[in-house]
Design a protein around this nucleic acid. Structure first.
Length: 139
DNA sequence: ATGCATGAGCG
DNA sequence: GCTCATGCATA
């Protein structure tokens, strides 16, 4: 399941930045900040997926859309793993703000009347300027 | 959605 | 070298 929930990470000895060997100790040493962040990430991942789906974007759409605007392009794989929390704690932390920003800006754009198709095109390349596109909804 | 491969970063 | 972040290929 989710990496960040499967606490006893590799035996190389570090869990959330804390050195230790067994799960018991790991749970004790988790800081409030760690758990808060963990919870935040969990919530956000669900929120993100929900928003993405409701907006009508594919995991691939989002990954590509991130490129031009946030200087970081990702594949469908990464988006999928993020939504499922199948990433390392730090990786999740890194991606969260980026995706959060994307959600905000996308929501604005949609409210301003920009079509989903137009937004997607910005991520790919300049195709046609005709709006009113439909975005593939596959799961 | 996920196993496997790879390149980057680090010690 | 090893770990980690990410992408590719896949049914």
């Amino acid at each position: 399941m989710a990496d960040i929930y499967a606490l006893p990470e590799p035996i190389n000895g570090e869990i959330f930045g804390h050195k230790l060997e067994d799960l018991e100790e790991a749970l004790k040493l988790l800081t409030e900040a760690d758990m808060k962040k963990l919870d935040e990430l969990e919530k956000f991942a669900m929120f993100f997926k929900n928003a993405r789906v409701n907006f009508g974007f594919t995991q691939l759409d989002v990954g590509h859309a991130l490129g031009p605007r946030y200087g970081a392009e990702f594949s469908q794989t990464t988006i999928s793993r993020f939504e499922a929390c199948n990433l390392s704690f730090k990786n999740m932390c890194k991606l969260q703000p980026i995706l959060e920003q994307w959600i905000c800006e996308t929501e604005k754009a949609l409210l301003n009347g920009t079509s989903v198709g137009a937004i997607v095109e910005l991520g790919t390349s300049r195709k046609s300027i005709t709006d009113d596109e439909d975005s593939p909804m596959k799961r």
